[in-house]
């Protein structure tokens, strides 16, 4: 009877509650090792996070030419992700609003709402001749004539459409500016 009682699990578990744990105490690291880790983490963060940009693209009336070239930046030849650049689905995840088109009146509110959802600090890039000043659509009743009419713009990338290489150049300039801040 007494032997059977000993084979049960519960009493052992109950005893474990009041006895010391089997796990070793955590080692206390030497101070110089901690400092080295902090330095490495900082460098990695600077390289990986500081030098990375999440881009939310907004078409504010483009003919789709600029979008074609932006999509081309994502192909394996340009591979913009190797620079820490990537397109994101939500403005809430974005550092950069990459805006195209002459800013149609019908897109103004959608652009402003997208900008409101983009956390500060953020950059607004106007890409393509239309986004710069309305381009060929300047003077139409239906357009505002450039992104600047609704939002302060940090960088202009002209071209009709700008080539993927020109777009990448602009984005890299932003990255370097961000690294310097």
């Amino acid at each position: 009877m007494r032997e059977g009682w000993r084979r049960l699990l519960w009493p052992r578990l109950a005893r474990a509650l009041v006895s010391p744990p089997l796990t070793d105490a955590p080692p206390v690291p030497p101070e110089e090792l901690v400092q080295a880790l902090v330095a490495r983490l900082e460098a990695a963060a600077q390289a990986r996070l500081g030098r990375s940009l999440a881009i939310r693209q907004v078409d504010a009336g483009s003919c789709n030419g600029c979008e074609l070239e932006m999509s081309a930046m994502q192909n394996v030849v340009y591979d913009l992700e190797r620079f820490g650049l990537r397109f994101v689905a939500s403005p809430r995840h974005a550092d950069v609003l990459l805006v195209t088109g002459p800013l149609t009146r019908n897109m103004r509110e959608a652009l402003l709402r997208t900008a409101e959802c983009t956390p500060e600090p953020r950059w607004v890039v106007a890409a393509g001749d239309c986004a710069v000043d309305g381009g060929i659509f300047k003077g139409s009743y239906a357009v505002e004539g450039g992104i600047e009419a609704a939002l302060p713009v940090d960088l202009l990338i002209p071209g009709c459409p700008p080539t993927p290489a020109q777009l990448l150049e602009g984005m890299l300039a932003l990255l370097e500016a961000q690294g310097g801040r």
Binding site: D59, G61, S62, G101, P102, T104, N106, M107, A110, I136, F137, G139, S140, Y141, A142, V143
Partner: peptide, 11 residues
């Protein structure tokens, strides 16, 4: 649709 209406014909 209509969000990217730029007034093509008018221009």
């Amino acid at each position: 649709l209509g969000y990217v209406h730029k007034g093509h014909i008018g221009l």
